[in-house]
Design a binder for these strands. Structure first.
Length: 348
DNA sequence: CAAATTTGACCTGC
DNA sequence: GCAGGTCAAATTTG
C-alpha cells in the first residue's frame, strides 16, 4: 500500500515539476529576446511565438489539471487499497496458511506485473523445426507452464528467465505457434531481462514442444530463423496502456545505441516511477514514442546486425522507425487526457 | 544429482 | 463461469 501511495506521489511530483518547467519555458519565450523561436524569422515570429505560447499554456493547464486529478485520486486510492487488503485476507478462508500467505503476497505483487513492457514478435523458423520452436533470442528460458488456448490449434508455452531466482530477472515470454502457419511462432515478451547473462555466451535454446510428438524432437535443430514483420496491428499487442511505453522514440543518439546498463536503468526508472502507477495513466495510449532500441532483445548491445534476427517492435502508428522530431511527439502528448509526465525529461 | 520440463491444480481478471 | 496465467510436485534429462 505504501508503495502505491509513493508511486502516486512520484507521479504527482512529476506532474508538478512538469508544470514548473513549462511555466519557465513560457516565461523564457515571452521575456527572453534571444529566444530561438522568436529570433529566427522576424516576419513570422509573432504568430509563431504566439502559437507556441498557446501550446505551452495548454500544456501547463493540462499538467496542473492532471496533478489535481492525481491528488484527488490519491484520497480514494488509499481507502481502496485498505479495503482491498482487507478483502483479500478476509475472504480467503483457506486453511493453507503459510502457502496461501506466500502465494497471496506473490499474487498481490503480480498485479504490478501487468505493467511491465510487453511486445510481440513473430518468428519464422525455416528449418522445419518450428515444432521445437527453438527460438534463440540470446537468453536462456525455463518453461514453467503450457496451456491450451481457446481457438488456437497449438498450446501456448510459458517461459521465464532461467535467472529469475538467481538474479531476480522477471523477463517472461509466451510462445505460441501460429494457426495459419506452423512455421511461425508468435512470441510475446513481457518485461526485460535484468540478469547479467551475456549474449556472447551461447544461449540455451528454448525447446518448445507444444503440440508435438516426441519423435519430432529428434530432428536436427537448425538455428536458422527469421523474425518477420507482421502487420503492425498484429505485431504489437496493445493490451494495455503500458504497452505503448515501448514505443517511445528516444531520438538521442547516445540512447539510441544503448547498452545494457542504460536499458536497465531506464526500465528500472520506468518500473519504479511510472509503470506501476497504473491509475495515473502515465503514458497513455496516444503517446507515440518509441523505445524500440531500449527494448532490443539483444540487450548486450551487440545489436541485431550481429545476427540474422531483426528485432521488430513497432508502435501503433509506425512512428517507431520514423526519425521525426521528438518535440513533435511531445506536443502531441499534451493533447492527451491523461498525460502526466514530461517526456522531455526522459530524452535528456 | 541438479537442472529442466511436464502437467494438473490453483488463482485472477473479465 | 470461463479462459489465461502461474505454481509446484512429479518426472525426465544430462
Amino acid at each position: 500500500m505504501k508503495e502505491s501511495i509513493k508511486c502516486e506521489e512520484i507521479g504527482l511530483i512529476g506532474e508538478l515539476i512538469q508544470g514548473e518547467e513549462l511555466a519557465k519555458k513560457l516565461y523564457d519565450q515571452i521575456f527572453s529576446p534571444s529566444s530561438p523561436s522568436s529570433s529566427t524569422s522576424s516576419s513570422s515570429s509573432s504568430s509563431t511565438s504566439t502559437s507556441s505560447h498557446q501550446v505551452l499554456i495548454d500544456k501547463l493547464i493540462l499538467s496542473i489539471e492532471t496533478a489535481i486529478t492525481m491528488a484527488k485520486g490519491n484520497e480514494g486510492k488509499i481507502k481502496t487499497n485498505n479495503v482491498n487488503m482487507m478483502d483479500s485476507h478476509c475472504s480467503n478462508g483457506s486453511p493453507k496458511s503459510e502457502v496461501q500467505d506466500s502465494k497471496f503476497k506473490h499474487k498481490h505483487v503480480s498485479k504490478k506485473r501487468k505493467t511491465v513492457p510487453k511486445w510481440t514478435e513473430q518468428v519464422k523458423v525455416y528449418s522445419g523445426t518450428a515444432a521445437e520452436g527453438s527460438v534463440e533470442d540470446g537468453h536462456s528460458w525455463r518453461k514453467y507452464g503450457q496451456k491450451d488456448i481457446l481457438g488456437a490449434k497449438f498450446p501456448r508455452g510459458y517461459y521465464r528467465c532461467t535467472h529469475r531466482h538467481a538474479q531476480g530477472c522477471l523477463a517472461t515470454k509466451q510462445v505460441q505457434k501460429s494457426d495459419e502457419d506452423e512455421m511461425i511462432c508468435e512470441i510475446t515478451y513481457k518485461g526485460r531481462h535484468t540478469c547479467t547473462q551475456s549474449n556472447k555466451a551461447l544461449p540455451s535454446k528454448t525447446k518448445l514442444k507444444f503440440g508435438q510428438n516426441k519423435s519430432q524432437l529428434n530432428q536436427k535443430i537448425q538455428p536458422q530463423e527469421e523474425k518477420i514483420q507482421s502487420p503492425l496491428e498484429n505485431n504489437f499487442s496493445i493490451d494495455d496502456k503500458e504497452d505503448i511505453f515501448q514505443s517511445f522514440n528516444f531520438s538521442s543518439p547516445s540512447i539510441g545505441s544503448e547498452n545494457e546498463d542504460n536499458n536497465i536503468f531506464l526500465e528500472t526508472m520506468i518500473e519504479n516511477n511510472f509503470m506501476e502507477n497504473e491509475d495515473n495513466n502515465i503514458f497513455s495510449d496516444s503517446n507515440i514514442f518509441c523505445l524500440s532500441s531500449l527494448l532490443d532483445l539483444d540487450s548486450t548491445g551487440l545489436g541485431p546486425s550481429e545476427s540474422n534476427i531483426t528485432e521488430i517492435i513497432s508502435g501503433p502508428n509506425s512512428i517507431a522507425n520514423s526519425p521525426m522530431d521528438f518535440d513533435l511527439y511531445n506536443d502531441i502528448n499534451f493533447d492527451m487526457d491523461d498525460f502526466s509526465i514530461n517526456t522531455q525529461e526522459l530524452c535528456y
